[in-house]
Design a protein around this nucleic acid. Sequence first.
DNA 1: CGCGGCATTGAGGTGCATCAAAGACAGTGG
DNA 2: CCACTGTCTTTGATGCACCTCAATGCCGCG
Lengths: 194, 194
Amino acid sequence: LAAGQALFCEGDTAGDVFGITQGSVSLSKTLGDGRRQIIGFLRDGDFIGFAQSATWACTAEALTPVEVCRFPAEPFGRFSAAHPALERRLLGIATSELAAAQDQMLLLGRKTSIERLASFLVRLAGRAVAHAQSGDSVSLPMTRGDIADHLGLTVETVSRSFTMLRKSGVIELADTNRVRILSAARLRALAGKE
Amino acid sequence: LAAGQALFCEGDTAGDVFGITQGSVSLSKTLGDGRRQIIGFLRDGDFIGFAQSATWACTAEALTPVEVCRFPAEPFGRFSAAHPALERRLLGIATSELAAAQDQMLLLGRKTSIERLASFLVRLAGRAVAHAQSGDSVSLPMTRGDIADHLGLTVETVSRSFTMLRKSGVIELADTNRVRILSAARLRALAGKE
DNA sequence: CGCGGCATTGAGGTGCATCAAAGACAGTGG
DNA sequence: CCACTGTCTTTGATGCACCTCAATGCCGCG
């Protein structure tokens, strides 16, 4: 899929399961007047499809060119029913997504704009490390607007927060969408984890 | 357990699974300086314990006198491993909690104070109906402060929002913690679902 | 070169937080 | 029975963090 294309939309009939093999995807929900909240960003290695309902609860859009592996609903349902180990694996994934969702609730409900951006960068860096990449230089496949919609802020506030982090020497912006973390410790402190 | 007591605290070693048979419980996360976010409210019939990690990611406190059923970690782990049907059931629960968490993210990131309170009341009413209770009169076992920490607001804003809903004739407050919904349709409209 | 989308920066406005105070209860003890 | 205390709720006045509006710069692309 090309960047900008949707895998599926909120309300579409659901069922299929997707595995991302290449690229980045955003999951979002939208209010009637256009206000949007990005539930999460997914990258290669992640799975989509804990629908359990007849229709998708959110929209999935490609941020970059994306390569996905689609498992049609029915064979997958039968296959997973026959393999308890797979279901256990899915339960594990769902559980860790739930934990991430709870962190995000704390972020959206109680953190300041800088804490939100710092937390976001810390999480991205952690995911980069989990993919055997450097945690110092993080790429941002999404736009400032996407980040804003993920952190419950506006584009302007996100941009200003980047500038503040940059001016205080915690990060460096090689490119608009590549962050170099200069002090992981200070970034973590700013993120206010607990 | 008496009201106010904790089932477990953020950071405690986890593992056990709980089923609530009577009463209401809050799940919350706290930042170092005391800022708190209530992840969710649970009531009789709900389960707690998708830990999957060595320590609890949040604190569980009794809002009312509570009766719980505790399943110790180890026998439960063995039992669920032996019963794929149970694991599938747990996956279903985790999935619907995930969907609820995503709704809450939209609420926290993008909704106004009135929309938040209206959405909250709509959800409570829905849960009351699911428990074969009237959806018109909803009881609030939690304080205004708890609601504030759940909706990402302050006590004062929650109180003002209640007043506004009351003055506009959408709800009625029999008691401080019992809401009568006068117009479910208008409440749903105010909640801004999609 | 000119266009359109994205990012940054500045100036000003606003929704909710903060601060302050008073009312409503329940519990407690005299 | 009633003063006393602490907790919760409500309401008002004020302030601020972030939003809104506006302008400019940057870059990729036809």
